[in-house]
Design a protein around this nucleic acid. Sequence first.
DNA 1: TACGGACCTTTC
DNA 2: AAAGGTCCGT
Length: 298
Amino acid sequence: MPEGSPPLDLGLCLTCGQVFRWWRDGESWAGVDGDRFYRVARDGTGLQVHGTGTEDEFKSLFGLDETTARSIERISRLDAAMGERVGRLAGLRLMRPGCPVETAFCFMTTSNNHLARIHQMVRVLASYGDRIPGAPVGAKRFPALERIAALSEEELRSKGFGYRARTIPLAARRMIESGGKEWLESLAKAPYEEANRELTGLPGVGNKLADCIALFALGHGSAVPVDTHVWRAMTRDVFPDWRGKSLTDQRYRAIGDFLRERFGELAGMAHQYIFVETMLMSRSQRIRERRPEPAEPL
DNA sequence: TACGGACCTTTC
DNA sequence: AAAGGTCCGT
């Protein structure tokens, strides 16, 4: 999408997932996906997109294609409650970033963490990457596995990574031993169960991160990341006996199975509507209890 | 197999 | 206390 090409009319678009590499830049949003850079600005009722990627690549990143539209329609027909959620959250899309290494390490910063610090850590990691030709100087592509593996725990600790300073370079070294980025990418073609087993074998990667990586980086639609929001929703609506109990491996599995039974390969997409709805509810509750905060896209 | 607690840091 | 958890010990 070179400068001066006709604007894409995207309508209202709410996304979730791998947004760690996007930032506010004046009136527009800027972001990186693999070696692509994009800038998105409001244009009347729609959005105008410029960048180093093609229109198809941008649409793929944000699920703005016919296949996605049909999948969304399918999950809303499969289940009445899901149909209502999809109606309330029209425009929500599962992101499909193009670089699994980038996505995997972005998610490794998220454990027991909050968005502001996640964003900061992702900026630090990206600072070790090369700049992207044709993009602003600050827009770096994510560093290669070898560069992450070469980082010392001490350095990352000094930059505020906490205990993740140990596991992040360690996971990169482990991936290199297994066959590097080709190994990670090959897990996209493996069965979900196998991908999940391999990913949870990485240091710092448990059930939840493995499912995030499987779903967002590798396209495993059966992956259902169960985080605190999804746990809250499921113990409220589906497994009330579990309220007040802890999230064990078995319960984690049962929640995923519940959605996989109903939505199959679209379980991960269905899960996202539950996640976002619950997250927005708890957020608006906080706002009611305290003071309004500036409107932030997801 | 289930549960508790430690782990880094910041905060609506 | 909780935040888009993981790991280890009992």
